[in-house]
Amino acid sequence: MAFKLPEYHHPDFTQPMFVNAPDVKFEEAEMDGVAPEYYHSTSMYPEYFKINGKWVLAEESRMDSSVVICDDGHLAVVENRNLKKGDKVILGRSEKAEEGIYMHCNGFTAEGEDLDDQFVFRQGRSRETSYARDYDNLFELLRHEREHGNIVWVMGPAFSFDYDARAAMQALVENGYAHGLMAGNALATHDLEGALLHTALGQDIYTQKSQPNGHYNHLDVINKVRRSGSIPQFIEDYKIDNGIIYSCVKNGVPMVLTGSIRDDGPMPEVIGDAYRGQTEMRGLVRGATTVICLATMLHTIATGNMTPSFRVMPDGQIRPVYLYTVDADEFVVNKLLDRGSLSATTIVTNVQDFIAIVAKGLGVMK
């Protein structure tokens, strides 16, 4: 049976609670980067605002941001740090139409299921959970998204330490299952180390044996990339022909690499400014319809906070955004749920095994 997106059910705005609701109130920001008192902060769910008697959807939402009424009537969801003096910022802390604000949590709920709006999420899962159906669902979803959606991968460095995991991810990229990659300096560094020297942090990526003076390997690779001036130029200079980063460059998959204070180097493309990095990440997320976060807690939480549960497509269709978070640690995969940011599918497993299962399930590797 072919994969089918769930239908979105709009709120029934003929109900008295909507008809009798007041228009939203707003207040102009007094200075750049500061919201008015009693500003409304957004969630991951579709949120509607009553303006001049009409309920309007804020289309590009994300968690913990303000809503600005633009001059053309469009609603912009803006991080408070990006507010400008004079922006008309919506006010209100209730979400059931009392102040002209309505959060629609169950827009994709099938008919006959519980339709009570509740800001709640699926319970955490453990190593004992069976994920067989989750994998089957994911295979169906990814086949659909390759042709009709936008798949963004958020990856920790664990993949770069294993020969098979690197090969599996490379195969997924080369077969059209990646439209964006977000990671840190470490993934790029050790994946390119594996491509050039067959090691990651000095250990052979197949045998895991430490190489003589191997602790220099990643530093040498960073130095070479910096000498080349860019990752694509390094790939050309050193005739790199394998790996995750290589396949993204070769296939034109956009990458956002954001750094941390502990980074070596870093690579030339790594963004050291945390807030510019956040902006670049959100730019990539804006097009995403499926996001898969793998073995990177901080990147996962950051991505979850900026990923809405829905996407308004160019034809006006409203569809769900799927988010998966995968890690060997139950604490990591459930932390996003604990933050109340997004109802994600969580899988507790080694991500190197996960990516190999996905590649084989999609038929891109034997």
Rank of each mutant, 00 (worst) to 15 (best):
H179E: 06
D162R: 09
E193R: 10
T109V: 14
P46G: 05
Q317C: 00
S343D: 15
I261D: 02
S94R: 10
N150A: 09
G277T: 05
F108V: 02
M182W: 00
A171F: 03
N20D: 02
G265M: 01
A76F: 01
E59D: 13
G283T: 00
M1C: 09
M365E: 12
R286I: 10
F49I: 05
D329E: 00
F310H: 04
A21K: 01
R339I: 05
V19M: 04
V249T: 02
A183M: 10
I292K: 05
E140H: 02
F234L: 08
V270M: 03
M365F: 00
Q123W: 02
Y238F: 15
A200E: 00
R276Y: 04
L5K: 06
K96P: 10
Q352K: 14
S126G: 03
D117L: 04
I101K: 11
R146A: 04
L187I: 09
G340K: 11
E30P: 13
G124K: 01
G156L: 04
P232A: 01
G287C: 11
P308I: 03
G340I: 12
E30R: 12
F159T: 10
V333F: 02
S43T: 03
A21V: 08
N350D: 15
I347S: 06
Y177P: 09
E174D: 15
G363N: 13
K84Y: 04
D23P: 10
Y216W: 11
G287N: 14
E193M: 02
L142N: 04
R282L: 08
M31F: 02
H144I: 02
V253H: 04
Y131M: 06
I101L: 08
Y275C: 07
P266H: 07
I235S: 04
L187G: 09
V333Q: 07
K250G: 13
R166D: 02
L257Q: 00
K366W: 11
M267I: 13
D23N: 15
A183T: 15
E37N: 13
S43Q: 00
Y45M: 15
I231Y: 03
V256G: 00
M255G: 02
R286V: 06
M267N: 14
A97W: 10
R311Y: 00
D87L: 03
R143V: 15
S309C: 13
N334I: 05
T129D: 14
M267C: 04
